[in-house]
């Protein structure tokens, strides 16, 4: 459990990035911070591993005040994935993944074996292990970044706009992958994005930020969609523009699916007549984008 108690951050230049922020993140939840740039969401994320120290207030992990812990030790116990993967360009993929275990004193051979297993976990071919990051596609680099974050088997995974710089197809694939990993590995994930669709797709719990680290609304995606707390949220999630309000058109597909239209009358999707096909289509799109990702490397 991660707990923010009245956390404030004022930067030396006087900017008040976060003002009296309080939030409890339960364990093993996928929580998404979403908001436009400069709203303080990244600052708040970076406070969890003490990359930023609050000016006042407390942050507790499982009841312990992190200000009293050793920052380096704390960071080694928390997985961190950032936008440009942040891989060490001078180390091979396998060495990047085993970096933190090696820092913690794990023997080289064991760290390497573990890293090879992790590459498999994140869906990367063993053959990539001895390449340098620059020789990988953007999607593959992000997977290595995730593998590196998982290498110390952390309870907490921090992800700072990790899929912001990859193309939409690869992004969809990585999103599916991270949801699968979270289901399998049962971590607490704190995920920062400015993309509300990504937030609703991934989050068990979504926190929408306004400027100054103020929470505009938090809840499950369904709660937020059903009852936007104010005009800011309504605009942010696109409800005010009718993007989220779908109506059924007169047209029907051959197997009886209903075509849905958004508030502008643009087709937004189809509503299946039976619930079954959703899963099948998910698998299909994954294999398609998988090919794209590999192709970028070949």
């Amino acid at each position: 459990m991660i707990e923010f108690r009245g956390v404030t951050k004022q930067f030396p230049d006087g900017t008040l990035a976060v003002d009296d922020f309080t939030l409890v993140i339960p364990s093993r939840q996928f929580i998404v911070f979403v908001g436009s740039s400069g709203c303080g969401k990244t600052t708040i994320l970076r406070m969890i591993n003490r990359m930023v120290d609050p000016t006042s207030g407390q942050i507790l992990i499982d009841g312990d005040d992190i200000a009293k812990t050793d920052a380096v030790k704390l960071r080694r116990s928390i997985g961190y994935v950032m936008q440009q993967s942040g891989l060490l360009p001078h180390r091979k993929v396998v060495d990047n993944v085993s970096t933190v275990p090696r820092l913690k004193g794990v023997a080289k051979a064991k760290a390497r074996d573990d890293a090879m297993a992790l590459l498999k976990t994140v869906g990367l071919d063993r053959a990539l292990a001895d390449r340098y990051p620059a020789q990988l596609s953007g999607g593959q680099q992000q997977r290595v970044g995730v593998a590196r974050a998982l290498a110390v088997d952390p309870n907490i995974l921090l992800m700072d706009e990790p899929f912001g710089a990859v193309d939409p197809l690869v992004r969809a694939e990585l999103q599916t992958e991270i949801m699968r990993l979270q289901r399998e590995l049962d971590k607490t994930v704190v995920f920062v994005t400015h993309d509300i669709d990504e937030a609703f797709l991934l989050g068990d719990h979504v926190v929408i930020f306004q400027k100054g680290g103020k929470i505009a609304q938090q809840g499950t995606p369904a709660e937020i969609l059903a009852n936007p707390a104010n005009d800011f949220v309504a605009e942010f999630i696109g409800a005010d523009r009718g993007k989220r309000r779908l109506t059924v058109s007169d047209e029907k597909s051959a197997d009886g699916d209903l075509v849905l239209l958004d508030g502008f009358g643009h087709p937004a999707g189809v509503m299946a007549s039976s619930g079954a096909p959703i899963k099948a289509s998910g698998v299909k799109s994954r294999s398609v984008s998988n090919k794209t990702d590999q192709a970028g490397d070949a």
Binding site: R46, R75, R76, Y80, M82, Q84, L87, L88, V100
Partner: peptide
């Protein structure tokens, strides 16, 4: 960003200098 991420995953200052800054 490489320096930042090295610090974020748990390199101490001295470790980062020899393992990241100097080689790069």
């Amino acid at each position: 960003d490489v320096q930042d991420s090295a610090t974020a995953i748990g390199f101490s200052g001295v470790q980062r200098f020899f393992a990241v800054d100097l080689p790069l």
